[in-house]
């Protein structure tokens, strides 16, 4: 059994590596699974006289590389999906921001301009004026601009995780223009205002 030690461990390591390939995005798996396995087998063949060294390389070099690569490929896949759904995200952000502005605008108009309209909170919640509904509405009023900011700005982040650039973690923000820029600036300013008022009211 002691004599078999490195070889059994190697077989097990190869088996684990092959199983872990499933963590990659499907496109990567389909295209490179055969090559990844072939590459490992070639390395095993070339280092068959030194199985302990090979085992060390597999666990110290290639397994961590596999996990970092899986995360990197998943991030890239997510970024690509985000790019294609930028229109959807902008639309959602626009609807949320519009709903928020409409609600706040009507509330302020009723109290400061004395408009003859119903209380917007009552109009929105009507008979279901429960604490949960009220808390949800308050949460929406406080956090909607932040939500708009996050969903509008997220497609512009470029996350680079180790390996190819030399840095462990690199985060870049792409240039933002057009409607996205307006949404980011608007929601950012409102978020800042809300948090300053919220924190200020707690301090004073």
């Amino acid at each position: 059994m002691i004599k078999d030690f490195p070889h059994r461990q190697l077989d097990l390591t190869l088996w684990i590596y092959r199983k872990l390939i499933i963590l990659f995005p499907i496109e990567y798996q389909t295209r490179f699974e055969g090559e990844l396995v072939q590459l490992i087998l070639t390395q095993m063949h070339e280092m068959e006289n030194d199985p302990r060294m090979l085992l060390t390389r597999l666990w110290v070099d290639w397994m961590p590389d596999l996990f970092v690569s899986v995360i990197r490929e998943r991030i890239i896949e997510m970024e690509n999906k985000m790019k294609t759904s930028k229109f959807v995200l902008n639309s959602a952000a626009f609807v949320i921001m519009f709903a928020w502005l409409a609600f706040v605008g009507l509330t302020e108009a009723k109290y400061f301009l004395h408009l003859p309209i119903k209380e917007p909170t009552y109009w929105l919640l009507m008979e279901s004026f429960t604490s949960l509904a009220y808390i949800s509405l308050t949460g929406f009023l406080l956090l909607a601009p932040l939500l708009v900011l996050v969903i509008t700005i997220s497609p512009y982040f470029k996350v680079n995780l180790g390996g190819s650039s030399g840095n462990l973690l690199e985060i870049r923000i792409h240039r933002v223009t057009g409607i996205s820029l307006a949404l980011i600036m608007g929601s950012g300013a409102v978020t800042l205002f809300i948090f300053v008022v919220f924190i200020g009211s707690r301090i004073l």
Binding site: W62, S69, R72, G163
Partner: peptide, 14 residues
């Protein structure tokens, strides 16, 4: 400069 298989094929893909 070491490049593991995962990094290599990811870079090749891009």
């Amino acid at each position: 400069f070491h490049m593991g298989p995962g990094t290599l094929y990811g870079t090749i893909k891009r």
